[in-house]
């Protein structure tokens, strides 16, 4: 995917919610911005977005289009499914995904595009399903979910671009692999805490 077009798109969607937020009088205007910020306030979401962004940033350019489209479609589907009121807590699953993605970054082995598409779809779906806003209804809920999708995409593409830019020199590649191991480490510790702390 063309980096310039990603950059312009990113800029637009960052600016757009700002406009929405600026119109305090519009009904439901704040909901879109709240949804936009939602992934930033959920640590498990940040962790998995960081991991997927870096992993995709390390992949060849021709992999990107398919994985990004798959991710966005599955994320949108997950968000739509929350309208059914499923109320599923997918934090443990997102953390397990972070472990897998972090380890894939650390080992730096080039797998087939199918695996990356599968991981992008799973991550997108889980992120969407885990972004339910039970306390909202009607227009506010739709706006929040739309903002959420935009927020998730903004964070992911920002990380992806940074990782792609950093994937040039030898020490930068090593730094990204170490970063991947850190993500996996964080996630392993928290998953173990979720599993064992309640016992």
């Amino acid at each position: 995917m063309n980096q310039k077009s990603i950059g312009v798109f990113l800029l637009l969607i960052v600016v757009f919610p700002k406009f929405v937020y600026g119109h305090g009088g519009l009904e439901g205007a704040n909901s879109g911005y709240n949804g936009f910020l939602h992934p930033l306030f959920v640590p498990a979401h940040i962790l998995v977005i960081l991991a997927l962004g870096v992993l995709l940033g390390l992949q060849p350019q021709n992999y990107l289009k398919l994985t990004i489209v798959s991710f966005l479609a599955s994320c949108a589907l997950g968000l739509l499914l929350t309208l059914l009121g499923s109320n599923i807590n997918l934090e443990p699953q997102l953390l397990v995904l972070s472990i897998v993605l972090g380890l894939l970054i650390a080992i730096d082995y080039k797998f087939s595009v199918g695996l990356y598409v599968f991981l992008a779809i799973t991550t997108g779906l889980f992120l969407g399903l885990d972004s339910e806003h039970q306390d909202l209804s009607g227009k506010e809920k739709y706006l929040t979910l739309t903002g959420c999708l935009v927020g998730i995409w903004t964070c992911l593409s920002a990380v992806l671009i940074i990782a792609e830019k950093l994937n040039k020199k030898e020490w930068q590649k090593i730094a990204l692999r170490i970063f991947g191991s850190w993500i996996a480490t964080c996630a392993i510790l928290v998953v173990s805490l979720l599993i064992f702390a309640k016992k």
Partner: peptide, 22 residues
């Protein structure tokens, strides 16, 4: 130089999981 700083935190996390599990 880069393998050890990758191995250490990952295995440390396993040790951490053992500690959390009691």
């Amino acid at each position: 130089i880069w393998l050890l700083p990758i191995v250490f935190p990952l295995v440390m996390a396993v040790g951490g999981a053992l500690g959390v599990a009691g």
